[in-house]
Design a protein around this nucleic acid. Structure first.
Lengths: 194, 194, 194, 194
DNA sequence: CATGAATGAGGTTTCATTCAT
DNA sequence: AATGAATGAAACCTCATTCAT
């Protein structure tokens, strides 16, 4: 790759990063996310945005994907390993809590911009389906109880993600979070193991 | 109350009912929900809508509440009874499946019109908090396992509602639904009972 | 028709007339014809234009049709009569000169807004085809010379309309116009009569 | 001229030729003629276009002139000869049919890019005025009928060019074209000769 | 009260032109 | 000379809300 195209790519990346940051700020402040406003705050012209993204939709999608990337990566590493199903489940729970901040970011974004309908598709793709796979395997191994793996997956998802959602509305201290996590792991183990 | 004001109230009720119906039709058909369109389809003038609702937001909120009322009523009857906590839980699960149609209506509405953020608040008010109460009581009774009642409630919610959400993306026959329900009840019992 | 709807129609007509006038002014002054500018000059809001016309295209088409209406009417009266073909031809020539002002308006409009491609279609519909019919009949009568009626029609059109177009670039006095008209009639007769 | 400046001129010519070709392709395909698109298709940068043409208008004008050059040349050769007026007229008609493709190209271009107003000026310059000269001479010779030479010129122009325009909307075979041409010549002779 | 025409802020997108590299 | 990213003026269109009748 030439020096020039490297530089271009760098600038492109920088601008996109700036856009992502700006859109986040707008969303957090519950201000309308218009192309005018994004451009103004990024210190570029409106046309420039259209040099980097075809539509407004493409721009927002990029922002959205940016949020999802670290979550996807962590999930991929966990779900595609060949470890024991139970181990992978525990890793998933650990991961959710570890990356609570990413999740919080994700929720902040997704909760204000996407409709529930859109979230459901994403949820399926991001968590339910991998969980179903793990559960199916666990059931075949004979280590997990023999229940519809979808129900099992939903149960796990609800048990793990639900409290994370609710935490925003409760006032929980650090130590509580560890306690909750332990309760969750305990509960999940109790349920799925024969 | 005078005859005149009675009449007024009647008309008000009729128009509001018509509006609710119209908004639903629009949402189901994925058509834009504009004041113009609502008015045209209701056979009234746009200004008339503003005699019944201050804002568009107020109008949509009214529609939303209309959907929630039967759900709230059923939940109230269940959660405010003095029956055994476990019985009430089973009644809740029964209720969710019985009113699956209402829920489907609810989801159709909420999924296309409200953001995830709004759904979370509602979810808390509508299901989590009542479930927390029931669980707390069950724990004090000594019949439920001693886990953070929030986690327990979330687990139950996730196990019951999650599959309902996903069902839209799976292709499930009637008999399957009964099977799933049995799996869910079985699972919930297995979890919460000591 | 009710008094109210009569009034509405009146207002609609008045606004449309105002719009037509405004668009003409803009075209004559070679200024850009934007919806914003039309609205401003008509003393109405941009949205109002959209209450009367679906698109900008529809608006411009209306203006265009407004120009064509008197021309079409005169042509229709002439070409649909049962008079002698030669008489109808003379009437057509008379008409073109009588309504020179309409034509001038038409040209002013069409020349600045429509491409030649569009004009050709219109020309066909407005003049050539009626002329072809008249010529065909004259040929069958045995009064017109036996030449491809399209060529004949084009010749007549060119002979009559061409000078009108060119007059804008020459400086012709009133008397000259009468002289030119006589020359044209003379020429046309000389050509088409056996 | 230095070698360097020769080379420059060559490059300039090549690029301009490429631009002309590209613009034609775009116009024929009814695609928007934007500077971006021209540059991309020519394989040069947008800025380069501005090194060869001051404005977009200048660029388009150049393309337009390119189309006109061969037409002008042929016309010049015909109208500036000292042959008999009638012979020159016949040569003009021959020429129009010979270079039908150039004319068709011309119309394709002019019809989609220029307004009728612009076409009229061009028409005058390109055909009417030369024809007026020829006719004037023919009238003075005593071979042409004594009619306003402008009217005569318009008649000839209309009779010759009109059918060419209309041919696009009719479906005419090769032989028909010869027939039409004969009809036209015949008609023109019949009219202008005493 | 009902009406619905008028309003105009707010939004997205296009594209000729400039200018630093 | 060539480049092409950045620019930003214009243009079109939507729709919640107001208000005179």
């Amino acid at each position: 790759m030439t020096t020039v195209s490297k530089k271009k790519e760098l600038v492109d990346t920088l601008i996109k990063a700036e856009i992502v940051k700006t859109v986040f700020t707008l969303i957090k402040n519950d201000q309308p996310v218009t192309m005018d406003e994004i451009a103004k705050r990024c210190g570029v012209a409106k046309g420039t945005l259209y040099n980097h993204f075809e539509h407004k939709k493409a721009l927002l999608n990029y922002v959205h994907q940016t949020v999802l990337v670290p979550i996807r990566q962590k999930n991929k590493a966990i779900f595609e390993s060949t470890k024991d199903p139970l181990v992978r489940l525990h890793e998933f729970i650990d991961s959710v809590f570890d990356i609570m901040e990413d999740f919080s970011l994700y929720f902040h974004f997704v909760q204000r911009r996407k409709t529930v309908a859109e979230e459901i598709g994403e949820r399926l793709d991001l968590a339910i389906q991998p969980l179903v796979k793990v559960c199916t395997q666990g059931i075949q191994d004979g280590t997990f109880i023999d229940v519809d793996p979808y129900v099992l997956a939903e149960m796990i998802y609800g048990t793990v993600i639900g409290p994370v959602k609710s935490l925003q509305h409760r006032c929980a201290e650090k130590q509580d979070i560890q306690k909750i996590k332990q309760d969750i792991i305990c509960l999940v183990d109790r349920i799925i193991l024969k």
